[in-house]
């Protein structure tokens, strides 16, 4: 629309206002995490300069929390689950779209059922299963659950994408003499690279941020994820404001950095994926 400057100003006014609403809480926490307790209370909105500046909060986080360990756990769980979701999801989607076999349609439906039925509803039986398998308080348990949880949406998106891709390239590879296995790994995998980003985003965020399964399946000190670690840490230090704010900032910053680096691909992936869905 070729709008007049007035309505354009109103539009930007609204957008800036909402941006402030979205960013202010995060900035407030980050700013105050670098202040002493006194500074936090005396002047919450001031920048952490001069006598207000203090890293006491971060010192107590480092002293009392095992945050590097938690980060390691979260990273391990998220990355392994992600690789499994992407690989197994792409394999299944390829198998379902490329080959005619009995029960193909039903199997496809079965595999995407999980989009509508949250896996959390099976928690009771899941815990019993892991107790039987001796996998409680292991990262393996989390990886298995998150993989199972992420597969339906991954298979759905990959299937939709593969359906839209011409099958001729696979036939061409067959004529070039590739086996069915190599066709998948050397032709199909490179082909679906654009949607891998979408699926990765859809799968990664809920895994990294999940509280439910770490709390239930692996609450032990050694296997705590960042999300659970923060939750427990803050539970213990409710009065130590500097420490709480520092812990929150520690949890935000890595995600923020990742987001800034990847935001373009990420948002393109989400919008592209949403268009397909």
């Amino acid at each position: 629309m070729r709008s007049n400057p007035l309505s354009s100003m109103a539009i930007h006014g609204v957008l800036i206002l909402y941006s402030a609403l979205a960013l202010f809480p995060l900035l407030l926490i980050a700013i105050n995490s670098f202040k002493s307790k006194k500074g936090i209370f005396r002047d919450p909105t001031a920048l952490p300069l001069g006598e207000l500046y203090s890293t006491k909060g971060y010192q107590s986080v480092l002293a009392n929390g095992d945050f590097p360990l938690y980060f390691g756990n979260s990273l391990t769980v998220t990355l392994i689950s992600l690789v499994l979701i992407l690989l197994l999801g792409a394999m299944a989607a390829h198998g379902l779209t490329e080959y005619r076999f009995k029960g193909n349609g039903l199997l496809g439906l079965y595999l995407i059922l999980g989009i509508m039925v949250p896996i959390r509803l099976g928690t009771v039986a899941l815990l019993e299963l892991f107790v039987k398998l001796g996998l409680t308080n292991t990262l393996t348990a989390l990886v298995l659950v998150y993989t199972a949880q992420g597969l339906p949406i991954a298979i759905f998106i990959f299937t939709e994408f593969l359906k839209s891709v011409s099958g001729e390239i696979k036939d061409s590879a067959r004529i070039d003499g590739l086996s069915e296995y190599r066709i998948f790994f050397e032709v199909v995998l490179p082909l679906i690279r654009p949607v891998i980003a979408t699926v990765a985003v859809f799968s990664m965020i809920p895994i990294w941020n999940d509280l439910w399964f770490p709390l239930i399946l692996s609450p032990g000190e050694e296997t705590r994820t960042v999300t659970l670690g923060i939750q427990q840490f803050i539970g213990q230090y409710t009065v130590n404001w500097s420490a709480v704010l520092a812990a929150l900032t520690v949890a935000i910053v890595p995600v923020l950095i990742m987001y800034v680096i990847f935001s373009k691909q990420l948002i393109r992936g989400i919008t592209a994926g949403a268009v397909k869905g």
Partner: peptide, 20 residues
């Protein structure tokens, strides 16, 4: 015989080039 062993080559409508 599998396609690769038949002594044929094929040109496709969508070209079917490997994009990578």
């Amino acid at each position: 015989l599998p396609p690769a062993k038949r002594g044929i080559a094929m040109v496709f409508q969508s070209y079917a080039l490997y994009p990578h």
